[in-house]
Nucleic acid binder design. Sequence first.
DNA 1: TAGTGGTCTAGACCACTTA
DNA 2: AAGTGGTCTAGACCACTAG
Lengths: 253, 253
Amino acid sequence: MATSPAIHTIPNTIDRDSFEPAYSQLANILKAQIAAGAFRPGDQLPSEAQLCRTFGVSPMTVRRSINLLADQDVVSTAQGKGTFVRRVQFGAAAFDLRELQSLLRNDATTIKLLDARIVTANQRVAGKLDIAVGRSAIYIRRLLSVEHQPAFYHREYLVYDPRRPIVESEMEVSSLSGLFSGSGSAIVKRADLTICATLMNEEESQVLKTQLPAAALLLEHIFYDFDDRPISWGWFIANSERLHFSTTVGIQD
Amino acid sequence: MATSPAIHTIPNTIDRDSFEPAYSQLANILKAQIAAGAFRPGDQLPSEAQLCRTFGVSPMTVRRSINLLADQDVVSTAQGKGTFVRRVQFGAAAFDLRELQSLLRNDATTIKLLDARIVTANQRVAGKLDIAVGRSAIYIRRLLSVEHQPAFYHREYLVYDPRRPIVESEMEVSSLSGLFSGSGSAIVKRADLTICATLMNEEESQVLKTQLPAAALLLEHIFYDFDDRPISWGWFIANSERLHFSTTVGIQD
DNA sequence: TAGTGGTCTAGACCACTTA
DNA sequence: AAGTGGTCTAGACCACTAG
């Protein structure tokens, strides 16, 4: 039987001298047993009281382990019924931007400021930034290259309000790196992000040095301040060969 | 001052008669205070001991509240230093497939089986399914329509192994709904997923009734069984107007 | 040394499910 | 009534940070 060897390498006791906390050890033991097939999707796990006795830990510690697995969508709990191994759920899959973040932190990545100027907001820009048509905005175009190859084309409109002089200086007009590295501005409360596929237009293909027709991922972002007013609206156009997102859903070892 | 009214509507005590648990109430109080600007990114929150005194709850309850906020990337904790409000982090953004999942559960969505037949695996298919070239596989083509409009074109190869007869019956060849609704197969241990942008080819544009050139989101998936062997390999082609993913990062009310 | 977060205990009481 | 998960207490001890 294929799974037998794996089962026998799973520890079944908590090592109190380990660096790893007991709740984490227990969660990993249970997950390894599930991964090895000892508990199949739909199966009920031992009750919390039983796990307390088996592993010699307190109820709170067992609960924390179970909660960890529940957060990872490995198990589901039902009051009065028990804890059960979950089936794989497509909808639980989540693609995150950490890859993108690490790419921008990479030394091989350079950011070139193509353009930065004051413009008057047209209907579209004014709508996104929640300002009046004809008001001023800062328009920025950047090209991000990885190993001297054009990878992302970024365009952004920033509100330009004499009463909010802080915006320009805080939003790191020339670098972008702050938003990705976590040292982002303290004036940003939240960002709304959208991702979709699009066809590149003439300008985009020239900047990114691709042949038309070309497909691209478009990542749109709007940043808001602590008064819930938009600060900036912008979007990345990514060469489709340069950017794809991967993830795993289900039981991971 | 714009934030004053908001601050005054934030409760500052735990309601012990509420249905909402104390830890959740406390987390929401702190988050509302942060959202209202009472604590800004970089600011230190009151210590856990202080929060215990202020709100009259035990240390474990305070910890649970803080952990909730830390899981949401609202705060970060540093042993020996304190708890601090985080800046918005681009990289923390995660796009999930719940929209897609609910779409497939929708009554207005229909799945049409275009084709299902046994084929012999070529190099590419054999590589993905980790079988020998020339072995049999099941090839399936499906069209998913939303309100009678073609939306997603799905193609999939399933391993066809006499020794694993369970695969075909378990993988819900004719419906697909299981994988999305959570009632998916119990033989699936995990799935690897990738998303990227692509240009539609002739066949795809005909099935989806679009004009060329057209951009599309491509969602590729490989399912594995509990012996870590591939069960199926397939991909969705989504009309780019039909599918986009949205998310919010930072402080959400 | 004082203050911080991190872990853990050994119970208690409650809500819910099943029989 | 018995068993399940869900919340909460009132501490304890530890590891880490800072003055």
